[in-house]
Amino acid sequence: MSAPTGVLQEAIVWLNDPLTWTEPGGILELAGEHLVMTAIAVAVAAAVAIPTGAWLGHSGRGAGTVVWLTNASRALPTLGIILLLAAGGLFGNTATVIAAAFFAVPVLLVNTYEGVRGADPDAKDAARGMGMSDGRILLQVELPLATTLVSAGLRVTIVQVVATIPLAALAGGGGLGQIIALGMGTQRYGEVLAGGIVVAGLCLAIDGVLAIGQRLTTPAPLRVRAG
């Protein structure tokens, strides 16, 4: 292995080559693939977690299960799950999306649950007194009050999914992780470093954009609490 300065230089040269970005299978194409997989995984996770979390929060049931699920999911090694899926015959981008969505559900579920459950009891009482049905209370009172927590959950989830997808490259999945996996496989450490920088940059950029988006979508009266 060459000296650190050599590796750094290799990484800079590689990143400065326009072809690296634009060639087929280059950074731009992989980043696009990465973002499409992220979008699908987050959409799947949201479709499962938000309604479930909202319903559990509304009915006040399953508090123990939700907490247990979140804690248990932390102990699960993502890589092990991805490799098990691969060994079960689920390969490539579909498996990656499934694994990423699987790990995204607990975060989103617990935030929706806490948000809906933590909605001001007086507001719920007033809504009930006005003759609102359970469904309307949930949709028009509790969920709007839970916006802060749900959008915070979405932000964490999206960043986490963007960060999880590169792991799947070790099991033959697509996305930007391929650069790191390929560089390791061929012992081109400059590319490994460059891949790491690109993936880290993407995550930070997305987190930044989402932080702004989160602020814009949070209704003004709730902003102070968001901190």
Partner: peptide
């Protein structure tokens, strides 16, 4: 928090060439 946002795979990939495999 910013450091925490960097994915583990990327962080290891950045650190390995600098600190050795």
């Amino acid at each position: 928090a910013v450091m925490y946002t960097v994915p583990s795979l990327a962080l290891f990939a950045i650190l390995a060439p600098l600190l050795g495999i």
